[in-house]
Design a protein around this nucleic acid. Structure first.
Lengths: 343, 343
DNA sequence: TTGTAGGCGTTATCAC
DNA sequence: GTGATAACGCCTACAA
């Protein structure tokens, strides 16, 4: 039922051979002006659409890079998507995105789809701990890929990431300078490398400062929507509360602030809160009570680096350096407050 | 350099023919148990990845539906993406998303990519007025597609949409019942059908109620980030202000509220505001001062309908009905207030 | 300047 | 149960 015309159809209509049509459609050299016109006219008339499957089959190039997400739900991913798009547009290549909705099987399927000729390379986004089979697979067949957010210390994997450990340390040091001594950490899903890194950064910074967080100064979440409410409730139940919170990311921080607020706590008077990601700019259109203090990621630079990397991997050379780490920056908002030390 | 194994490689390693390998990998019937085992083992050993380009070439089926956005920037699109993903997962098919960043040329390229064998059909998202060449193209070659948000009264185009005219009318009637008589409308980008429909709905409802909006009761925006600030400033400059605003969408409404607030106006005491899209649920993690009153779209139902439609179009039959319209629902928040009539 | 022929990796038809 | 062989639509030597 589909009436997509092929080169052969054009050739017949224009009264020339397939080769000539192909030449006109691509290289455009060594063809008579007359013939060329006829071919273009026939192509237009037939609404010719090149079959990229067939073309990819013979050239093994599609001009497309696939991007695989864990989920479309996180605003930070969306922001990065926009940045990647801009870069891609400049480079004249095209990006297609997909989300595996946290399902590993689905992720593998998409990878296969891309490996099997739908893309020249993939950008993997996220740091789920069970990503390893996917990475192994890609490495085994030497399919071009770049990872964003995950960290591979052993393997030679092209990746761009943010120094999450350092970012967490910055947060702790900042709170310390403000006079806070009892600081709690609300973790993300520790099955993701990002969450582990921020967790470790927190612990290290605390130890360096001579502070020993108690076990209940770690409030664990799974990073899902609504987990901030639960975390806040857990916090509220304690008799002795910390004076400051370093929260895995802004989403959770906002959720917690909302819940703490509801319970009558004032931010930052009763509790200082610092997040991660610095989504405040992104959400500026929604006027909030609080302008969250947060650690920001240089998304534009990261997108740029990731695109450069994938392009060079696709063209056959390992990027130099193979891994790029970016420094996050603390952005002061209005959710942290100085604290007198004689508390 | 890529070392992706083919069926031929497996055949050699397993000591059988290509045909047999193909049978094992797909149909799984009429092959000896012994042989089957050998083939699977060889496939695993070689990290076999089917070449979907080649497969698509002969079967003209990919199991993938392409989704084309105007932009990744709008939160409502993301929400819908999530819904579509859920539906697709249930149906066992895969979705890849791309955004043309408002560039028509880019959109055409993606369409060609999908038409040329990367997908079995496409879902088009948005209602830019210059989409027509894309639609024409798809119709000319009878490539399966479904449109969300655009409205085609003349053409037989499979589409799902929200009754934007009706939604706008609801908003006006609601404000009228609250006692408002001087109502202004902040438009979206009128080059998009959605914006035009809401604009028309507003005008019709006003006329029906015997209210005649002045020309400066229409504040025009292009729908871009930051346009709400400008709209609010335009509003503030006027000597005689309306008592209520019907705003094209929630983003703009939030931006305006923010700006009006800054200028000392209280919402809803000094100005009632109603938006469209009902993003409040989506942004619930960021505690705001205001819980916006808004017209909500039944995104889940729409995603469901769109997926059903594209599946039936792909399988060769026109969906019945060819167009599905959904009713938006007014969700009361805290940004609209009763107004005494003796103003 | 133009045309012929071969092959990319897969599936499908039809012999053996 | 198994294996040749012919497409699918395209590109690209190489030949005319």
């Amino acid at each position: 039922m589909l009436i997509i015309a092929s080169i052969l159809d054009i050739a017949r209509l224009a009264g020339v051979s397939k080769t000539t049509v192909s030449k006109v459609l691509n290289h455009q050299y060594g063809v008579h002006e007359e013939t060329r016109k006829k071919v273009w006219q026939a192509a237009a008339e037939l609404h010719y659409t090149p079959n990229i499957a067939a073309r990819a089959l013979v050239t093994s190039k599609t001009g497309v890079i696939g991007v695989v997400y864990d989920s479309f739900k996180s605003p930070i991913y969306n922001e990065l998507a926009g940045q990647l798009e801009s870069q891609a547009q400049k480079l004249g290549i095209h990006l297609v995105f997909c989300s595996c909705n946290q399902q590993q099987a689905s992720k593998l399927h998409y990878i296969q789809y891309f490996m099997g000729g739908a893309a020249d390379g993939v950008i993997l986004f996220g740091s789920a701990e069970d990503d390893d089979p996917v990475i192994e697979r890609l490495m085994a067949v030497k399919f071009p890929f770049v990872v964003i957010e995950h960290r591979y210390d052993q393997l030679q994997v092209p990746n761009v990431l943010v120094d999450n450990v350092g970012g967490a340390k910055q947060a702790v040091q900042y709170l310390y300078k403000l006079g806070h001594r009892h600081i709690a950490h609300v973790t993300g899903n520790l099955r993701h490398q990002v969450a582990v890194d921020r967790y470790n950064g927190f612990k290290e910074a605390m130890q360096t400062l001579g502070l020993e967080p108690a076990s209940d100064d770690f409030i664990h979440t799974d990073g899902s929507i609504g987990c901030g409410q639960l975390a806040a409730q857990a916090l509220l139940e304690r008799k002795e509360r910390p004076t400051a919170l370093f929260v895995f990311n802004d989403l959770i921080a906002y959720e917690m602030i909302d819940e703490l607020h509801r319970a009558g706590l004032r931010i930052p008077e009763d509790m200082s809160v610092i997040g991660f990601d610095h989504l405040v700019g992104l959400l500026s259109f929604k006027p909030g009570i609080h302008n969250l203090t947060s650690i920001s990621q240089p998304l534009e630079k990261m997108a740029h680096a990731a695109m450069d990397m994938i392009m060079s991997v696709v063209s056959g050379q390992m990027p130099e350096p193979i891994s790029q780490q970016f420094k996050p920056v603390l952005q002061e908002g209005g959710t942290c407050q100085k604290r007198e030390l004689h508390s």
